[in-house]
Design a protein around this nucleic acid. Sequence first.
DNA 1: CATTGACTTAGAGTTCACTTTAAGGTTTAT
DNA 2: ATAAACCTTAAAGTGAACTCTAAGTCAATG
Lengths: 126, 126
Amino acid sequence: MYTIREVCEKTGLTSHTLRYYEKEKLLPSVGRSAGGFRQYTDEDMETLAMICCLKNTGMSLQEIAQFMTLAREGDSTLEARCEMLRKHRENVLGRMEEMQRYLDKVTCKYDCYSKRLAEYRQKQGE
Amino acid sequence: MYTIREVCEKTGLTSHTLRYYEKEKLLPSVGRSAGGFRQYTDEDMETLAMICCLKNTGMSLQEIAQFMTLAREGDSTLEARCEMLRKHRENVLGRMEEMQRYLDKVTCKYDCYSKRLAEYRQKQGE
DNA sequence: CATTGACTTAGAGTTCACTTTAAGGTTTAT
DNA sequence: ATAAACCTTAAAGTGAACTCTAAGTCAATG
């Protein structure tokens, strides 16, 4: 069991964000202590790791919430979730390829600017 | 010379977005026809290509505006712009590496789900 | 020469993903 | 036992990047 503070430290998310994710159904309702404080289980931590992974690869919180809602419905939703992951993976791959192409352009621009800068310095020195 | 419509078609941006970019100083003030309609030059098109390249690699519009403002000030800002590009390129490289690591996780999750799904189907078939 | 459709402006509204605020209750250390 | 630190909620606010609206002007076509 972890307090919200410990979860913040482990995940890098703020407590506000954790509560927000719970409100948005990314996480199931987290258990509480006698005093009403959240107590995160290891299972909650795994769910959070999955959330971070999906979020960091560009899935919207809305879609993550959808995925997690399906996950809570059990094995009958395995196919739907599998399909979501497959599509998401395709998207990520596509974006990475696009990114690579844009990176090449940025590199090219940078080289071009470096040359112009060298020439400019030469001229200044004359 | 291109009308705003032609520029939309070439860039995939909407006319609203093009005007918004101009207001935000990403583009210099675009020339006008007798009737007050925007007329984009080839130079404007090149600037737009650069903007899209920087935007699609994750530079904020604010930073792009900064870059473009420097560009309009002439060669004395070459060094500053060169440095911006260098840093930006580093950022993009870093993000791509991070993305690759997350992609591996997504792939792993997908494989795991595929297996679970196969098992589930087997069980259903029994 | 009238209508249709594209263009103009300023400014308000939207979406996403938080982030902050206000007002109060709980835990822990001294 | 009391202060400091941390937790709770609901709701409002923020920043980025658009996106839409209203009211009007311009251009092309039958």
